[in-house]
């Protein structure tokens, strides 16, 4: 088996007395989207900064494509594309100039800015100063910039924060394309629906430690309440909400009867959402 794209062992970092990252370990495979979730101040950004070579770990190691982030920092950064939480583009330059600058820093041969801008839906506006762009356009340009070097490692921090659903869809399909081509994606987001949709596995970090790490489906099952919520319609136009417990003797018959006897409008099994899990895992800690 190929070595993992990201391999983290016992990584720690503290700001003074404040232990922000407390001995975390995990691997991310090539082509995998790894969702990294947790409340503000849990250590998410610190982890990203450690993995992208902005901070030097105080203990533990991080290898990116087999390269040590401390001793081979610049070599590892050659393979990274990063989209930051707050947009940091050259606002006095236009989109093409922004991308070309970074392409030249990565020394990308035959870089085609227009083709990339086409992919993020910004062609036609490429000659305008970025300062005139809407938030969504800037966000998409950030994504394009992260893809300039066709990176094998993508670090995306809130890549769709504040984007309308159409732009969000554009960004999601870019992520899917990148992983299909073998890139590993390290995704930090507050949007649990997005994390669920995109991530192969998610890790929850709380107070500097990873407290849960699994596929979204496995987590949802583990934390879920097993019940069916059924909305049935009556002849008089009223609707009624019923709940059927799952995993009990006779459940199958009860469900089947319901569908046979009633006019079912909607039915939804109540898996926990990642949001529920998030609140379950971190909410208690926040309150106490």
């Amino acid at each position: 088996m190929a070595s993992p794209a990201i391999s983290v062992k016992d990584l720690s970092f503290s700001y003074g007395d404040n232990l922000a990252v407390d001995g975390i370990s995990f691997d991310v495979a090539e082509g995998e989207v790894f969702g990294f979730l947790g409340p503000n101040g849990a250590g998410k950004s610190t982890t990203v900064r450690l993995l992208t070579g902005q901070l030097t770990p105080q203990a533990g190691t991080a290898e990116l494509l087999g390269m040590d982030i401390v001793s081979e920092r610049k070599k590892a950064q050659q393979e990274m594309g990063i989209s930051y939480e707050s947009t940091n583009l050259y606002e006095q330059l236009n989109a093409v100039e922004n991308l070309n600058l970074f392409a030249r820093l990565y020394k990308v041969a035959d870089f085609d800015a227009m083709a990339l801008l086409e992919r993020v839906g910004l062609s036609g506006r490429e000659k305008e100063h970025v300062a005139n762009y809407s938030k969504g356009m800037k966000q998409r340009l950030m994504m394009a910039r992260a893809l300039v070097s066709r990176p094998r490692l993508l670090f995306l921090d809130e890549p769709t924060d504040g984007l309308d659903p159409v732009s969000t869809q554009t960004v999601h399909s870019l992520i899917e394309t990148a992983t299909r081509e073998g890139a590993a994606v390290f995704l930090t987001t507050h949007d649990m629906v997005e994390a669920d949709k995109l991530s192969d596995r998610v890790a929850f970090i709380h107070e500097g430690r990873i407290v849960a790490l699994d596929t979204p489906a496995a987590l949802k099952q583990r934390f879920g309440m097993r019940a069916l919520k059924v909305e049935v319609g009556h002849a008089n136009g009223q609707t009624e909400l019923r709940e059927v417990a799952l995993d009990e003797a006779g459940t199958a018959q009860a469900v089947h009867d319901l569908f046979r006897d009633e006019h079912v409008l909607t039915v939804h099994s109540e898996e926990a959402t990642l949001e529920d899990i998030f609140i379950d895992i971190t909410g208690r800690g926040l309150q106490g």
Binding site: A217, Q221, L228, L246, T251, A252, Q253, V255, H256, F259, R260, D261, V264, L265, T266, V267, H268, S269, E271
Partner: peptide, 23 residues
């Protein structure tokens, strides 16, 4: 769906994880 045999069989014999109408 109430008269669908395959649906009834699934409910009886398989470990159902999720059921969702497609709104």
């Amino acid at each position: 769906i109430g008269g669908n045999e395959r649906f009834a069989e699934l409910l009886r014999s398989e470990e159902i994880e999720t059921i969702h109408t497609q709104e």
